[in-house]
């Protein structure tokens, strides 16, 4: 058996993989938060609740309509994204002229309502969601056994994050989006329908959260609290990365997941708090965040 720093190799790699998976969720959620914040200037507190809705959508599609995992991976984000667009059109758009704090408070209230409703309907114990048969089993990588589904989650998250980054940085739609983030009235003067762009951005960010929710469904049991368990850590990730850059939130998300995984190997008691400790260090040395721009 390979030993690394006195730790058995398979244990170290196993925790690294778990860390990467958590990191994948941090990355997808903080990416959505960053995109939404850029356009709407709102911290979407309901992000965790909508992530949870993504997982529930997958579960409902399977149990009520007999629609499997892979179609749900497309359908659930579309459904929840449409719900997000509905929310933006009806409620959130009323707050753009007010202090940003009101957006935070409103979405916080929203998350309480959504989570409360799901808790009423499904209890808080959680329901299992089976790993699709195609992704069951494990692969021998030589230095460790990797459960196929976990590998798939990391891969899928990586692809989706890269795709989002490419769309925003390399396409003309992304260029318009970035321009509207910088100066919305000017972009509107060029004939771009900025309000529609904002709505689509919110829908897109929510769809990303829901996609993460579907990926999470077979790993964590589907329960109403799964979002709020994640979201507090994701806020710390956002503070560490800074809201300035898309790539920054992806890198920070994955990186912190790995840090968390490694802490579990070397000093398990601190694994729940290590992200917050990193946040404290970053705040002391670089208050704007690792990738943040000066305001």
């Amino acid at each position: 058996m390979i030993m690394i720093f006195g730790i058995p190799g398979p244990l170290l790699f196993g925790q690294l993989l778990l860390g990467l998976i958590n990191g994948a969720f941090y990355a997808m959620l903080s990416l959505g938060l960053a995109v939404i914040f850029g356009m709407l200037n709102i911290i979407n507190f309901a992000h965790g609740a909508l992530f949870m809705m993504g997982a529930f959508a997958a579960w409902m599609l399977l149990n009520y309509f007999d629609i499997g995992y892979f179609p749900a991976l497309i359908l659930a984000p579309l459904l929840v994204g449409a719900f997000g667009i509905f929310l933006e059109k009806t409620i959130i758009s009323r707050l753009y002229k007010l202090d940003h704090l009101y957006g935070l408070l409103l979405t916080f209230g929203l998350s309480l309502v959504i989570e409360g409703l799901f808790r009423n309907g499904y209890g808080s114990s959680g329901m299992p969601y089976r790993i699709p048969s195609l992704l069951q089993g494990a692969t021998d990588l030589g230095f460790m056994f990797m459960p196929n589904y976990r590998g798939w989650v990391v891969l899928a998250a990586f692809v989706v994050c890269t795709a989002t980054w490419l769309i925003i940085e390399k396409t003309s739609l992304g260029a318009t989006l970035r321009a509207a983030t910088e100066n919305a009235p000017l972009v509107q003067a060029f004939g771009v329908n900025v309000p529609r762009l904002i709505t689509l951005t919110y829908g897109g960010g929510i769809a990303l959260a829901a996609f993460a929710g579907v990926l999470a469904a077979p790993i964590y049991s589907v329960n109403p609290n799964m979002g709020s368990n994640f979201i507090n850590t994701v806020f710390a990730v956002v503070v560490i990365g800074g809201m300035g850059s898309i790539l920054g939130s992806i890198v920070t998300g994955f990186g912190l997941g790995v840090v968390e995984g490694l802490t579990k190997v070397f000093y398990p008691q601190a694994s729940a708090t290590v992200v917050f400790v990193v946040m404290v260090i970053v705040l002391l040395t670089r208050p704007r965040g690792l990738f943040g721009k000066a305001a």
Binding site: S111, L112, V113, G116
Partner: peptide, 10 residues
């Protein structure tokens, strides 16, 4: 309770 609080919040 949570739902009511959320609605009042909003």
């Amino acid at each position: 309770v949570t739902v009511t609080q959320g609605v009042i919040f909003m």
